Simulated assay, not measured.
Amino acid sequence: MSTKSQVLTLLMKQAPTFISGEEMAQELSLSRTAIWKAINELKKEGHQISSSRNKGYRYDSSDILSAEGIKLALAPTTPDLSITILDSSESTMKDAKLAAINGEPDNTLIVADIQEAPKGRFGRPFFSKAGCGIYMSMLLRPNQRFEEMAQYTVIMAVAAARAMDELAHLTTEIKWVNDIYLNGKKIGGILSEAMSDVESGQISNVIIGMGINFSLKQNEFPEELQEKATSIFSDRTPTITRNELIAAIWNQFYRILAQLPAEDFLDEYRQKSFVLGKTVSFSQAGTDYDGTAIAINERGELIVQLSDGSEKVLSSGEISLQSIK
């Protein structure tokens, strides 16, 4: 751990009280000069640190993304994450894929302050602004066969919805299969991809990406998105930090994984779905269909009953709902 990282972690642990430079130097076995340099570097990065001649230093709450801030909010039962924070990224999914190729370990998390070319399912672009969102991808190495793989997209949707509801006091909903909604507008989307070993038939890597509109004000969205999208704190000052929400989402995600198969996340997913019981439109094999969404099966697939009584099973990797009424 770098000197700067050690200092930041100690300041965050001590917050909101002051800690003297001498105490920090003793605890970290560093010189006072090294402490002073690290604090100045942190201030340049945007961290809010108060200084007092008599009291020392105090970390003031700020929404700067940091591996230290995320790790401090992780639950004891959550695995030790390898976290990389980027000022910007073309795509954290691409970054995670590169990490997989380079042999990075299981539970590698990449977080960016802004994505320059963010994409969702089927390559659809979405809006991104520095300091106002969460753009992250996790590399997992499950070594499972395809038929044994957990429904990671569904688990992630439940984990994200739980964390948002608990920390920001919201009532979110889930649009099958991968979008989080608030008051009828999208606040987040999830994308998962699997990489397989052809010889063993096992999944060698799973990458789960998520984009969340955190504190973007409603009038800051492009005009064409203002009726379709919103953010967690679109009309109020954030009551939590992005670091805290990121940690809470992964705490919930790993909690669900640890409790499988007893954890019935699908029931929670179904309860939060605003698609079930609605008339949906979709296209399959070049043909357009309308029907009623009647169920979500154990594989996370959507069951739609057509007007003639027949049923269509929609797989998340193949189908996108065109409308919901």
Rank of each mutant, 00 (worst) to 15 (best):
T292F: 02
A295C: 05
K312F: 07
S323Y: 01
K312G: 05
G309I: 02
G317K: 15
I319K: 15
Q322R: 14
S307P: 05
G317F: 11
T287C: 10
G309P: 03
K325D: 00
V304N: 02
G286M: 15
A285T: 10
S283K: 14
L306A: 05
Q305K: 15
G291E: 00
D290N: 09
G286P: 11
D308M: 08
L306V: 11
S315C: 10
V304R: 08
E318F: 15
S283I: 14
E301S: 04
E311Y: 07
G300L: 10
D288V: 07
L321E: 00
I296F: 01
Y289W: 11
Y289F: 14
S320F: 13
K325W: 00
T292G: 02
S281K: 12
N297W: 12
D288M: 11
S320N: 15
K325M: 00
L306N: 09
G300W: 08
K312I: 03
I319Y: 14
A295T: 04
A293C: 08
L321P: 01
S307W: 05
K325R: 10
G286H: 12
E311N: 10
D290L: 10
S310C: 09
V313D: 00
T292W: 02
S310A: 03
Q322D: 03
E298C: 15
D288T: 08
I296W: 00
I324H: 00
S310W: 03
T292R: 11
E298H: 15
V304L: 06
E301C: 02
S316E: 10
Q284E: 07
T287V: 12
S323N: 08
E301Y: 04
S307M: 07
E298D: 14
S320P: 13
I324N: 00
S316N: 13
S307Q: 09
N297A: 08
S283L: 11
S281Y: 06
A295P: 03
T292M: 08
L314H: 08
Y289Q: 12
S316Q: 13
D288H: 12
A295H: 11
F282G: 05
V304F: 02
K325G: 00
T287F: 11
Q284Y: 06
Q322V: 02
N297S: 09
D288Y: 12
E311A: 10
I303D: 01
L302A: 03
S307Y: 06
